[in-house]
Computed example of a mutant assay.
Amino acid sequence: MVTRPGPDVVYSITVFPGNSLTFTLTPSATYDPTLYIVGGSCGSGSGCVVESDTGGEGQVETIGPRTFNPGTYYVYVDSIFSPEECPCDHGTYMLSVTGTLGVPNNTSFYTLTPCRILDTRDPNGPYGGPALAASSTRVFTIAGQCSVPASAKSVSVNVTVTQPTAPGHLILFPGGTPPSVSTINFRAGQTRANNAIVPLSAIGTLSVTDGQSSGTTHFILDVNGYFQ
């Protein structure tokens, strides 16, 4: 389960064959939010928008349980202040995502005791500092750390950013050209975490691109399983 407080923000989630997810949005009593899932192909072979809006202040919005075609989707919460005639503030909410993300093709999932692979707040080194710098990419060797074998194709991780000096996002990918989809977004001074399944390169490395336009952010990566 992933739980987040408001205000409005866009989350990304990547799903695989065999997924089944339920999105539950619980707003504060005086707010009337709408929950959207956008992108990919929601079982129809074409782009889609899935929307939940009960139209009532403080009412829970739910999408699912639902199976999505494999791909990356964006989850957006629009928590406009109620009454609607005064969109001058945003509400607070808790967003929970439960179920299974599915399994990448031709692989099996193996759980691990949660283990911290790297923390850039630590002294400078392969799995420590310095902090990630704007518009830069660092490459970390994941295979061989925290019981992740060299045969692992992807890993299930918890990604945390803390002490960012400017807003931005991080992209986790196996290497080459960074994809256009961010793994986690953040504002200056914010500490945020997100769950993700990220592929590794053929030699077991993971690339992390800092999408800030300026400044730095610290980055923490915990692993809890792998696919092979």
Rank of each mutant, 00 (worst) to 15 (best):
D89R: 12
G55I: 00
T137V: 13
I203N: 15
G56W: 00
V77M: 07
V97G: 03
M94N: 14
G102Y: 04
E84F: 13
A188M: 00
V75K: 06
L172A: 03
V139N: 10
S44V: 15
Y76N: 10
N69W: 03
Q190R: 14
T209R: 14
Y36K: 09
V181K: 08
P33C: 12
I184E: 07
P17G: 09
T216W: 11
T217L: 08
G71Y: 00
V139T: 15
Y73N: 01
G58I: 00
P17L: 11
L206W: 01
V49N: 08
H90M: 12
A196L: 08
P130I: 05
S28V: 14
N124H: 06
T162I: 12
V139C: 03
N224V: 10
I220M: 13
H90W: 11
K153L: 10
S147C: 07
S182H: 10
T160N: 08
V38S: 06
S182T: 13
D8I: 08
S135H: 04
G168I: 04
P17V: 07
Y31F: 14
S214Y: 00
S44R: 15
E84Q: 11
T177C: 01
G40F: 07
S46W: 05
I203Y: 12
L132F: 12
H218R: 08
T141D: 13
Y76I: 15
T98D: 10
G129F: 09
C86H: 12
L25V: 07
P114W: 09
P167Q: 10
P7Y: 04
V223P: 07
T24C: 02
G39P: 02
V75A: 04
V198Y: 03
F23N: 03
A188P: 01
P7V: 09
I203T: 15
V77L: 04
P123F: 00
S82H: 03
L95G: 01
I142G: 02
E61F: 05
G40C: 08
G225V: 02
G40W: 05
P104G: 04
P114C: 06
D122C: 06
T217F: 06
G47N: 12
N106S: 15
A152Y: 02
H218Y: 15
